[in-house]
Nucleic acid binder design. Structure first.
Lengths: 169, 169
DNA sequence: CAATACTTTCAATCATTTTTGAATCTCACA
DNA sequence: TGTGAGATTCAAAAATGATTGAAAGTATTG
């Protein structure tokens, strides 16, 4: 397989995975492109290689910077901004985890806590089923949150190595 | 808070979470509704309570059954089908994990393996960066996959308890 | 400070995904 | 085997989300 073909395939695959995980496809593709580029790319490079508009490139590059997955680089003598992806994939995983926890898990936990204070007869099977379900969910969501907190705050390699030793033959 | 208001909020929140995770909003809402209902509901109940069309209700109920999160129930003397959600939230987590692994992780692993066989001078920094990135990703994706496999195949409670003891003070 | 090079914004457009609902099918029962 | 309650399908419509590109903004240079 040619390098370009391989890159193309890889970018497509990463884009598809991203879109299943709430990251928009183009953002994941831009990330993939930067990931496999040894040197920093300009916005123009990204536009050309992915055939997307200037505005789109800009938006997604900024989103990636926002997620902490990509950094701007200033090349002296150049006016353009250049962009380079964080190549340490553990760090990438960490950043993504951190962001999603903040953006998705937290709001749900808030609602669960709120909603548990429902009025009414606790003998009423409707109320009972409701409160029970909510409490169960609260349990698992907060455990997931704590778990992710640990993943994020520990040294990634140590953490995963430990985990893998424990669970993967 | 009134029960109905609480239910409504809960359903909305669960729907939003779902949509961030590649499960469509209505499917997540249907699931939420069944989750907090003590008895099985008919398709009609779901339609009415969520204000969705017959076709939509049908589609999403079937998708939920497909994911193993909801079961059909036959009430004797009734022609209608009734639907009830799996209430054990660990089982739900397990089923979701299983599905996503199958649907998303696997295809990516396949592409990664394929794409690694790129032709060309391994001294070429482009080829080098590419292969390195792909190998890194392969590493983490396959570890994630194995990790999830373990989660799925172990007794959930044991697994999480162990994990929690290890990592959560 | 004017010209230039580049970046950012955002309303309009385009693409994709969901939803609807009427038509069709199915199957238990008379 | 005919009827009808309910389930399913699917093409069209609606909603949502992504993309464009031209205009406005900002910084750098001579």
């Amino acid at each position: 397989m040619e390098l370009d073909e391989a890159k193309e395939k890889f970018i497509q695959a990463w884009g598809a995975l991203g879109s299943h995980w709430g990251i928009n496809r183009t953002m994941a593709q831009v990330h993939a492109l930067l990931l496999v580029s040894p040197q920093a790319l300009s916005a123009e490079d990204v536009m050309n290689q992915l055939k997307i508009s200037r505005g789109n490139a800009n938006m997604n590059l900024r989103a990636l910077i926002d997620w902490g997955l990509v950094n701007k680089e200033h090349k002296s003598g150049e006016r353009k901004d250049f962009f380079i992806a964080e190549k340490d994939i553990w760090l990438v995983a960490k950043q993504v985890t951190l962001e999603r926890r903040k953006r998705e898990l937290r709001p749900v936990m808030k609602v669960l806590a709120e909603v548990k204070n429902v009025e009414g007869d606790s003998k009423d099977p409707n109320v009972k089923a409701f409160v029970e379900s909510v409490e169960n969910l609260e349990g698992i969501v907060s455990k997931a949150d704590k778990f992710l907190e640990v993943v994020v705050e520990s040294e990634q390699k140590w953490f995963f190595n430990t985990l893998m030793k424990l669970f993967v033959k």
